[in-house]
Amino acid sequence: MLEWVLPAILTIITASTPLVFAAVGEVLVEKSGVLNLGIEGMMVVGAIAAFAVGVTFESATLAIISGAVAGAFLAFIFGLLTLNLLANQVATGLALTIFGLGLSSLIGHSYVGKTFPGLPKLEITLLTDIPFLGPIIFGQDILVYLSILSVFGVSWFLYRTRWGLIVRAIGENHDAAYSIGYSVKFVRMIVILIGGALAGLGGSYLSLAYTPFWVENMTAGRGWIALALVVFASWKPGRALLGAYLFGGITIIQMHAQGFDVQIPAQVMSSLPYLATIFVLVLISRDSSRTLLNAPACLGKNFQPSS
């Protein structure tokens, strides 16, 4: 029994980490009232940027940084269009995804077939050797720890700092925040950039650790799952972490179930995470009062200062 539980848990962690990054970044962005549907695009561009730099310079650190920067760069385009040119957020986000997928294929063309050695895992003598728990807690790579840290960081920022309060206030009522004297555009731009960097990190994890080679369109809809997770988590970073692991878990369990010769068509099992997303969305929208308090009131609305 135990001999397959440990690998299963380890793979669940690797399957969940990209979702954690992307979902937590989007929680932050949506809390400021911006709906960025381009997560998929930012992730995939992060993935190729990290992979290309990693392969070329053979440096994991440089690769991770490039992944984050690439995600933030795509987010910057989004911010420019929606905040300064007041483009529709939904349309711009969708365009960003399409653009990101195309751009990554273009860049990735010459990297098909190459491999990256993977990210080094943390090794602490004695601690990592603890049976079962050791490899789970002390044997991960840096991005896994960073993803958990980002959840606590975003949570602490949103609910414990003044700037977090300002972000939430802007998401709640941007006109009021503006009349009090905060720069809605500036705050949103910063938050969009951070969200983009986090999505880029999520993408980097895919191409550096999860499957350390480049395949076209390798995010495979994870950006959309992350988007659904934000609603699933009712805009709370902690719950987004939980949700990400739940969905990561379902993905892995269905793979293992196929291995154990469970008589359910593979296609049904693969669609489970998506079905679960729909199910959760239905559940949540049924009970509106609980989620409304967390849902930013200005979500998806462009801000134009009135005279």
Binding site: R162, L165, I166, R168, A169, E172, N173, D175, A176, A177, S179, I180, L293, N294, P296, A297
Partner: peptide, 18 residues
């Protein structure tokens, strides 16, 4: 302001702090 610059989903204290 005539149209209050308040945030419904925040507490009184948070509204004042901001």
């Amino acid at each position: 302001f005539q149209h209050f610059s308040l945030f419904d989903a925040l507490t009184v204290e948070e509204n004042i702090a901001i």
